[in-house]
C-alpha cells in the first residue's frame, strides 16, 4: 500500500494552517484544495487572484476568471484581483505563507528542480522560481520515484534548479519526508510502506 494522489493531497492539506495564504502549484497540488474546509485558508493564484474559489457551476464559467493553471474558477467573498506585478510582489515579498509545488527532484539540502528535464522539451519557468524562492514555507508533492524507477529524492539535484535550500517537506506516495541538509528525515510512512522500501527508493540517506 502506498498513498494515492488523493491521500497525498489530503495529507498535504494538513500542513496548511488555518487563516494562511496558500499558493497551490499546477497539477497534483491543485487537488489539495479539495481537502481544505471552506474558509480555512486563502488561495492565491499568481495570475492575479486571492480568494480563489471552486470551479464554477456549469454555465457560469468566465474565461477571464481563471487560476494559474488556466482553469476556470470562481472568486470567494473577500477575494480580490490584481495585476501580475502586484501578485509577484506578494510572492517575492514573503506575504504568501505556504506554497505546495510539484517537483521532479528534491535534494536533501532542500534544493528543488521542477521546471525542466535535461534534454527534454523546454516548457518554461512560469511562476515556479518566484514561488519556490519567495514563499515562506515550500512543500513539494510528487511521486517518490520516476516512471523509470529513478530516484527523485536525491543527494544533489542534477536537473536544472528552481530554487536552492527552500523545501521543508516532501509528500510522496511513500510518505512524508523532511530535508535536513545531508539526509531526509522520515516524518511518516504511508500505510504498509516499510523503512527498507523507502530507503531503497531514496537517493539520499534516510533517517
Amino acid at each position: 500500500m502506498t498513498f494515492s494522489t488523493e491521500d497525498m493531497a489530503r495529507r498535504a492539506s494538513k500542513e496548511i494552517p488555518a487563516g494562511s495564504i496558500v499558493n497551490l502549484g499546477i497539477g497534483l497540488p491543485t487537488q489539495v484544495a479539495d481537502y481544505l474546509p471552506v474558509g480555512h485558508a486563502w488561495l492565491h493564484s499568481e495570475n492575479g487572484l486571492l480568494g480563489t474559489g471552486p470551479f464554477p457551476f456549469e454555465g457560469e464559467e468566465d474565461p477571464n476568471l481563471i487560476n494559474a493553471g488556466k482553469q476556470t474558477v470562481t472568486v470567494l467573498p473577500g477575494g480580490s484581483t490584481f495585476d501580475s506585478a502586484a501578485s509577484f510582489g506578494m510572492i517575492r515579498g514573503g506575504h504568501v505563507d505556504v506554497a505546495i509545488l510539484g517537483a521532479m527532484q528534491v535534494a536533501a539540502n532542500g534544493d528543488i528542480a521542477n521546471w525542466a528535464v535535461p534534454g527534454g522539451k523546454v516548457m518554461g519557468i512560469g511562476g515556479a522560481m518566484d514561488l519556490a524562492s519567495g514563499c515562506k514555507n515550500v512543500i513539494a508533492m510528487m511521486q517518490h520515484v520516476t516512471k523509470k524507477n529513478e530516484h527523485k529524492l536525491v543527494a544533489r539535484c542534477d536537473y536544472p534548479l528552481t530554487a536552492t535550500r527552500v523545501v521543508t517537506l516532501v509528500i510522496t506516495d511513500l510518505g512524508v519526508f523532511a530535508p535536513t541538509g545531508e539526509a531526509f528525515r522520515i516524518v511518516e510512512l504511508a500505510p504498509g510502506v516499510t523503512r527498507e522500501q523507502a530507503i531503497a527508493a531514496t537517493g539520499a540517506p534516510l533517517v
Binding site: 506585478a85 509577484f88 517575492r92 518554461g124 519557468i125 522560481m129
Partner: peptide, 22 residues
C-alpha cells in the same frame, strides 16, 4: 519555431518579467 531557430526565445521567471516591465 524555437526548435527550428526561426524564433529566438528568452525565458524569464514570471515575477521577474512583471517586475522588469514595472
Amino acid at each position: 519555431r524555437m526548435a527550428s531557430g526561426e524564433v529566438k526565445v528568452e525565458i524569464t521567471p514570471q515575477g521577474t518579467l512583471a517586475e522588469r516591465l514595472r
